[in-house]
Design a protein around this nucleic acid. Structure first.
Length: 428
RNA sequence: GGAGAGGUGGCAGAGCGGCUGAAUGCGGCUGUCUUGAAAACAGCUAGGCCUGAGCGCCUCGGGGGUUCGAAUCCCUCCCUCUCCGCCA
């Protein structure tokens, strides 16, 4: 949610910033509705003040001068009627305004690249050398089936297209990755581990910006009106909803592992091969709530924490900065990490880290105080995947495969695999 | 799921339908005193809205209603607690 006051006071700046996204935005409607709302509020409040004054007088007069009291009552009643009528108009205007406001994306940071879509993204740097093979590396769907660790057919049998089953050492390898990543972020990067609900109420989805715009991509239980989370970012960002954080509470650093559920309506038909894009996948997510002036440097730190995972796994990757036109709805600035998958021969987005400024804390009504008695402010929020499991799994399998079709387990994961250091076909 | 009790400020806890945005206590902040601290005393101590300051408006779990006027009465939903049932 953008600050309405900012839109009102500096509409041209806001308009210019939003234009960089290359999407139409109904800013003029917002301004007109705001104008209308303010004039209605003024009118209603002044009439209501009169009603309050009259009521006070009725209270004083009712013993002393019943007749005058009755007169005041009549006057007040008429005014009250007016307040009610105008109040309904105001409610309509406010609903319309909130609706428009809810659809406005965040303002891109001034220092990010210009661009219309992903073609405008900029590769910041790369790490590691893609491995050279003296045989033709297989894609993970072949490796997975030959090893008996990825079962596509039975996934479809159980839940339909875009679902799969991990089996044996495949399931174990994912679990090892999860446990190892959580430990890394907790022990070395200073995050607090959270186990959140995997379903949330509607207003929680609104708070992190998933609703109203991305309704089509969410799963939902209509009977209880709860929504399956598409990322742990949703519950984590809303953890302190409607709270005023004590001085000294920031920065808050959270890590959570959750499944993520996405209907992928917008990406229908894309990436249908393998486990790159499914309706259900696991992810280890990092979320920070920080003082506004620190959020830019905190983003750098967050990205480095995600990078650390790839480095320790020995997986070559590149850091991509998103241009203004490719930025997510809530984001101010975003860096993606793309890992090299030698089997399918593409760069896979395993992580996306964003500074969202106060966009989410405004929507979720999260506030903090710098000192006792100081005014309340909205903290900045940041989120980043570290990492998304299926794509990490793809990179591990394809990178560490051998000519005979077995796969070496990266050294850091062996202790988490109960000592297993090789994925082989017969293994259970 | 059934029965009962209850939801008021950071916490505890009052509140005949009218000067109660809310007594009182605790906690917190500031000041006096003190070398310093404690104690004592005094003051302050919710959030939000608006041509931004005006003896302005809103909020006592959410929403709706009655009334000139609702924390206080009515309806409804949500949540918490106790007991019973069920259960990973």
């Amino acid at each position: 949610m953008l600050n309405l006051r900012l839109i009102r006071e500096r509409p041209d700046e806001v308009r210019a910033a939003l234009a960089r996204r290359h999407q139409p935005v109904p800013l003029d409607e917002v301004l007109a509705l705001d104008e209308r709302r303010r004039s209605l509020v003024q009118e209603i409040e002044s009439v209501r003040a009169q009603v309050n004054e009259l009521s006070r007088r009725v209270g004083q007069l009712r013993q002393r001068d019943p007749q005058a009291a009755e007169a005041a009552k009549g006057e007040s009643r008429a005014l009250g009627e007016r307040v009610r009528e105008q109040g309904e108009v105001l409610a309509q205007v406010e609903r319309a305004l909130e609706e428009r406001l809810a659809w406005l994306p965040n303002l891109p940071a001034p220092d990010i690249p210009e661009g219309v879509d992903e073609r405008g993204n900029v590769v910041e740097r790369t790490w590691g050398e893609p491995r050279r093979f003296d045989f033709a590396p297989r894609p993970h769907w072949e490796l997975g089936e030959r090893l008996g660790i990825i079962d596509f057919d039975r996934g479809v049998k159980l839940a339909g297209t875009r679902f799969y089953v991990l089996r044996g050492l495949g399931a174990m390898l994912q679990r090892a990755l999860i446990a190892w990543m959580l430990d890394l972020h907790r022990n070395e990067h200073g995050y607090t581990e959270i186990y959140p609900p995997y379903v949330v109420k509607q207003e929680i989805m609104y708070g992190s910006g998933q609703l109203p715009k991305f309704q089509d991509n969410l799963y939902r239980d209509v009977e209880d009106d709860v929504w399956l989370i598409p990322t742990a970012e949703v519950p984590l960002v809303n953890l302190h909803r409607d709270e005023i954080l004590e001085p000294g509470a920031l920065p808050l650093n959270y890590v959570a592992h959750t499944p993520c559920f996405r209907r992928e309506k917008m990406a229908a038909g894309r990436d249908t091969r393998g486990i790159k894009r499914g309706h259900q996948f696991d992810k280890v997510e990092l979320v920070k709530l920080v003082a506004p002036e620190t959020s830019d440097e905190e983003l750098t730190r967050l990205v480095s924490h995600a990078e650390d995972v790839l480095r320790r796994l020995g997986l070559p990757y590149r850091v991509v900065q998103l241009c203004a036109g490719d930025l997510g709805f809530a984001a101010v600035k975003t860096f993606d990490l793309e890992v090299w998958a030698p089997g399918c021969e593409e760069w896979l987005e395993v992580s996306s880290s964003s500074n969202v400024g106060d966009f989410q804390s405004r929507r979720a009504n999260v506030r903090f105080r710098r000192a006792a008695g100081a005014r309340v402010e909205h903290p900045h929020a940041l989120n980043g995947s570290a990492l998304a499991l299926p794509r990490t799994l793809i990179a591990v399998l394809e990178t560490y495969q051998r000519a005979d079709g077995t796969v070496e387990v990266p050294a850091v994961l062996v202790p988490y695999m109960g000592g297993v250091s090789t994925l082989a076909p017969a293994a259970r």
